[in-house]
Design a binder for these strands. Sequence first.
DNA 1: AATTCGCCCTGTCGGC
DNA 2: TGCCGACAGGGCGAAT
Length: 301
Amino acid sequence: MPELPEVETIRRALVEPLTGRRILLAELRLPRLLLGFPAADFSAKLKGQKIRAVIRRGKYLVLELDKYALIVHLGMTGQLTAASRDATENPNFHKTVTGLQKPVGVHPVDKHTHLILHLDQGGRLLFRDPRTFGKLVLVPGHKWREHPRLSKLGPEPLEMKIAEVVPTFPKDSIRPVKALLLDQEFLAGVGNIYADEALFLAGIHPRRKVKTLKPAEKTVLLKAVQSVLRKGIKYQGTTFSDYRKPDGGKGGNYERLMVYGRGGMPCRICGTTLHKTVVAQRGTVFCPLCQPLASPRKKPV
DNA sequence: AATTCGCCCTGTCGGC
DNA sequence: TGCCGACAGGGCGAAT
């Protein structure tokens, strides 16, 4: 699922091909993905709009247009592909990629392609989402930060001051700490992959109750969140199924994960078999030795 | 008020 | 070989 590093990778790759381009035609092929705006008006409103900026907030991508903002959430399986004028359709675009190889051409318009923006200079932006958990929102003006979907988002993990966020941990909360990391009102952009990775790096059990965390542990955890997100961006995101960069290539971070997707395999640090369980209704992998739930009791004399 | 649960959706995979 | 249930999970609204 695209989380902050994946969305940021996509954003960076779209800045050059999209900024300054004018939308000639917008094809919305699955109208139910569009929220809060009459689907019938969508194409008419977008036509002629120039893309002014490509911005990320949490897991949301925002295209600032002349008079609107187009907010995109990729859900679990959303893909954005930028195609230049001379890109040819490759029927195997999504299947031929192995490793970090970059596919040739552009993905064809298939049954999972839900939005096509035709741009001046011959380029196209295609939005593809097999499981349709993605969402599109068109907001008049540029006050997209006030939209209900974004207004309550927590701080950006890579811009926050840790000393300012440590006091925002709920003091009496009995929630497992992983649930807090996944809460977009606490931090914006952390999802299941990077929550598990951050907890491992911090040496904190995903089921630890928030109220039992010491201040030093909160600091370590927030630093770990920043660390795993930066690493994710550095390697251009984690591809384990559907995530692709706008050129169709896979991210390079999956092979570098410490715990996510590695249940039953040995811990890269201590060799202990990694546990797979469910925390906060999400599949969760952790190392029982590196991430103890309780501090080790002194052996009775 | 805090927290959990159910739902949306479809490709993939393991079991028989 | 083919069918089928289980599974993956972000975010929202309902339920507790």
